[in-house]
Design a protein around this nucleic acid. Structure first.
Length: 364
DNA sequence: CATTCGTGGTC
DNA sequence: TGACCAAGAAT
């Protein structure tokens, strides 16, 4: 029997909720605990939208995107009726672009199969595109106040420490989920879920946890053992290889830039880009045999930009040699490409790495 | 269970 | 600079 078990689940939940009442973060998609106590209910659409955006993404990065999306598409019906290309453009820069495609598909499913109202159970939510175990539980708890076990990275860390779970992730996930399920209160389960995540995001941080300020300082087994900073245990990830490629930035005399669309699935799926070569670990940035054939036909005068574009993805580094050329007004956009005028360029669905490449090419 | 999928901040 | 990390899902 560990020390954490000496505190009853209701006592743990009560202590955390009392802390949350005083220290809850103020967030655009959140109903603060005081307001919620006065009957204000969260909008499931906004809860869902925020949860999708927050998958593996920081609050700071999400805020401007959440504001833009809710301004432009105030309801799930508005989003369902939107053009997918516009959604991809609005998502550009946020990363994990399959989320944007699934976002649109989910909105359509809610309108078509659920009358424009989100399901209020984990099972119903889980069946929708882009909604996995975490997000289904989070929406059920936060939007519908259902006693779901909400387990994200924060909760994994907090719970691993509370019970001093030394089994490495992800093998410890079942134990963590069970421990959380035992603590979820029937009163205010939505606030409890958000409180767990706030605790992990503020006090129970990965490094240098502020145990002195923590509402669970007394029952925390890892703190008692002096191993809080070492938990949770995770396997080290493999080193990232470096891949190389060429980017070809063509600027027309009026400033328009030649773009094309990436394939719908895979890396940066469905997003826009300047023509680029295939990438590989043995690609030479000066190898013009990699110039896409539709561009080779244009017979342009190419100049290499002084510095390469460097970018790091989840599992590899990329170094792009950037080549620049100026095209006459009469040059037609090759098959599958289009000219993007300067006024439109800022709104194109350019991922960050491709925006870097375009900027490098235009600065030449 | 392991891999693929972005980006920006932090130490 | 490199490695880790952030309200994970899909395959």
């Amino acid at each position: 029997m560990t020390a954490a078990h000496t505190a009853s689940a209701p006592d743990l939940a009560a202590a955390l909720l009392a802390w949350y009442d005083r220290h809850a973060r103020v967030l655009p998609w959140r109903i603060s605990p005081r307001d919620r106590g006065h009957g204000r209910a969260p909008d499931p659409y906004r809860v869902w939208l925020s949860e999708i955006m927050l998958q593996q993404t920081t609050v700071q990065a999400v805020k401007p995107y959440f504001a833009a999306f809710t301004e432009r598409w105030p309801t799930v019906a508005d989003l369902a009726a939107a053009d997918e290309a516009d959604v991809m453009k609005a998502w550009a820069g946020l990363g994990y672009y399959s989320r944007a495609r699934n976002l649109k598909a989910c909105a359509e499913a809610v309108v078509r199969h659920h009358g424009g109202t989100f399901p209020d159970t984990e099972e119903g939510l889980r069946a929708l595109p882009g909604i996995g175990p975490y997000t289904a539980a989070a929406i059920a708890a936060i939007a519908f106040d259902r006693p779901a076990a909400v387990v994200d990275g924060n909760v994994e860390r907090v719970t691993s420490r509370l019970h001093a779970i030394e089994t490495p992730l992800p093998a410890s996930k079942p134990d963590i989920r069970s421990a959380v399920a035992l603590m979820v209160p029937h009163e205010r389960p939505g606030d409890f879920a958000q409180a767990m995540m706030d605790l992990g995001a503020s006090l129970c941080s990965p490094r240098k946890p502020a145990c002195a300020l923590c509402p669970w300082s007394a029952p925390c087994e890892a703190r008692r053992l002096g191993i809080a900073e070492t938990l949770p245990v995770k396997q080290r990830k493999a080193a990232k290889p470096t891949r190389f490629g060429l980017a070809f930035v063509v600027k027309r005399e009026d400033g328009a830039v030649l773009l094309r669309r990436r394939p719908p699935k895979g890396l940066l799926g469905g997003m826009s880009e300047p023509p680029v070569s295939a990438w590989g670990e043995d690609v030479d940035g000066g190898d013009f045999t990699l110039l896409p054939p539709e561009l080779a036909a244009a017979r342009l005068h190419w100049t290499r930009v002084a510095s390469d574009v460097r970018h790091t993805f989840t599992h590899f580094h990329l170094e792009l040699a950037v080549w620049h050329a100026t095209a006459p007004m009469g040059l037609a956009a090759p098959e599958g490409c289009w000219w993007s005028a300067p006024a439109e360029l800022g709104e194109e669905a350019l991922p960050t790495v491709m925006r870097k490449a375009v900027e490098a090419g235009l600065s030449a």
